[in-house]
Amino acid sequence: MSLLTVSGSPHVHADESVRKIMYGVLISLVPAMLVSFYFFGLGAIIVTLTAVVSCVVFEFLIQKYLIKGPVTICDGSAIITGVLLAFNVPSNLPLWIVVVGSFVAIGMGKMTFGGLGKNPFNPALVGRVFMMISFPVQMTTWPKPIPLNTQLTDVVTGPTALAVVKDGVGRGEKVSELLPKVPEYMDLFIGNMGGSLGEISAIALILGGLYMLVRKIITWHIPVSYIGSVFIFTGILWWVNPDIYVDPVFHLITGGLMLGAIYMATDMVTSPMTPKGMLIFGIGCGVLTVVIRVFGAYPEGVSFAILIMNAFVPIIDRAFKPKRFGEEVKNG
């Protein structure tokens, strides 16, 4: 007779694994990916592929030859980093920059800290911010969307809607005069605007987010508190002076807010673990985003906001413990 196994309870396990979670995230990214392929054409496909392949290859090389540990590229986390990195860059970005960005994302953002689960900062955002600071011109040359474009060069470029408003306000123009210069709200919502690959279509990102919610990969806390706090904060500003502050809906559907709130901020590794902590984290991200967007030098502040809040995660985790069951509430 074979030996009986002795182990502690529980003796059953949920049908859940890291790999399933990662591929679940990838599936949820498909709608946004399709939208970007539709509006930016071949360029988008090539950038996405380059980012994914280089992220996986860098992870493999580092794990195999530098750390000399087990190779875990199959868990899908490097693929997600690649896709998210591609989502954060314009479709006409020179490919070598994409490769450099991938290296920074995987090498500096993730493997330096010991790989999956140990990185304090979202690797894709580390890569993105690195590229943003190192190659500002290339990173802010946004191609205008041309549906089903197969051409690689000669695309028309232009600023993002956020940049238009920011520059205009900076020159002293009124918001009401500037709004006609940007696409209609409906277009912004669907994704027919210039911008980074994955951030353009709010609707596709929300769809993906809903899928992740249903699969219980993410919880509602971070996206809702993040988007909600941006809405409220910009709403207050708009209410104070609608001439220089643009309305909150505009803030929600432009820039990288949806991508950041649904995918970047909810990254399991770099977000707090307790529901209360998640709410605080989301609110922090929201407030910082608005501060950077409205008062800062950059037109977009999502990546910086999330990276800054990432640094606070250990403190948040420590400070906001869940309310224990049966914890004495008030004696009275």
Partner: peptide, 8 residues
């Protein structure tokens, strides 16, 4: 060994 141990 009469049993196989698994766990922490």
């Amino acid at each position: 060994p009469k049993t196989r141990f698994e766990g922490l």
